[in-house]
């Protein structure tokens, strides 16, 4: 079987298009590359959607935590503490069993026990908490002069937030937020190892890498392939976030622009 044939058969296997049966013996390098690559679709799906949704909630949470109103501040603080203080792995398990129990209450919750929605919700809440802490830190370090200038121009409320506070907060938070994004994509690899079932063997990249390692009892091929894909993905994220970073810092004099310093060194 030619490699092109394999790509046609298994290229979209992770979303259920193509051959049903996974290869069982005589694993070729091409098969491993194709299947693990097809699993990356899930990693990217979880990462992108959790990041976008999480960004919105994180902004709200950061504003809540910085608010002087107790009713807004306390819930935000607790939310951030709970999701940052406990392991993501346990959160996945808890989320899965919670959704299982809810399913007995009402059939509306059926899709929540599937990975595509349930795991996405857990990841979304988790990244929202981590990003909110980053944004909160940035919010506190907005230069006093900037808000004073906004006051002097007669801005207040929404327009002050929209034009001064929010862009400055993003600009300051961006390097740390890039790390958070990288880290979130790495965390997506946990999904299918934490309760959520891989329906019809439609799993993510690590799921397939693990499948091959189990079948061949040789970890030295599938895991380096997985590492290759993840390093590629990391480079893409760094590139995209770098573009946004230069856009956010466009107004600053050239030599003052903070360079993106990458230290993706966390695990949940």
């Amino acid at each position: 079987m030619s490699c092109w044939q394999t790509i046609q058969d298994y290229g979209l296997r992770a979303v259920g298009i193509g051959e049903r049966l996974l290869p069982r013996e005589d694993f070729t390098l091409c098969q491993q590359f194709t299947l693990i690559g097809s699993g990356m679709i899930w990693n990217i799906y979880f990462g992108v959607f959790a990041l976008i949704l999480g960004f919105l909630l994180a902004t709200a949470l950061a504003m809540g935590k910085a608010s002087s109103n107790r009713l807004l501040r306390k819930p935000s603080e607790w939310f951030i503490f709970v999701f940052r203080g406990s392991p993501l792995f346990i959160q996945f398990f808890f989320g899965y069993f919670l959704f299982l129990n809810l399913k007995n209450v009402s059939p509306i919750f059926d899709p929540f026990t599937a990975a595509w929605l349930g795991a996405l919700i857990v990841l979304f809440l988790n990244t929202a908490a981590y990003s909110a802490e980053i944004f909160y830190g940035a919010l506190l370090s907005i230069p006093k002069g900037d808000t004073e200038a906004a006051d002097a121009y007669g801005m207040s409320g929404w327009s002050r937030f929209r034009r001064v506070i929010w862009p400055t907060m993003l600009r300051l938070a961006w390097p740390a937020y890039t790390n958070e994004a990288i880290f979130l994509f790495h965390a997506t690899a946990l999904v299918f190892f934490s309760g959520f079932p891989a329906w019809q063997q439609r799993g993510d990249a690590l799921y397939y890498a693990n499948y091959f390692a189990d079948k061949t009892f040789n970890p030295f091929v599938p895991y380096p392939i997985l590492a290759f894909y993840f390093i590629l993905l990391t480079l893409v994220i760094v590139g995209v976030f770098g573009l946004v970073n230069s856009r956010l810092n466009k107004h600053l004099p050239q030599d003052l622009k903070p360079k993106l310093r990458l230290r993706p060194n966390l695990i949940r």
Binding site: H186, A189, A209, A213, A227, I231, I267
Partner: peptide
């Protein structure tokens, strides 16, 4: 640091 830690654990 560049690769998900869980992959390393399994590997």
């Amino acid at each position: 640091r560049g690769v998900p830690d869980i992959a390393f654990f399994l590997f």
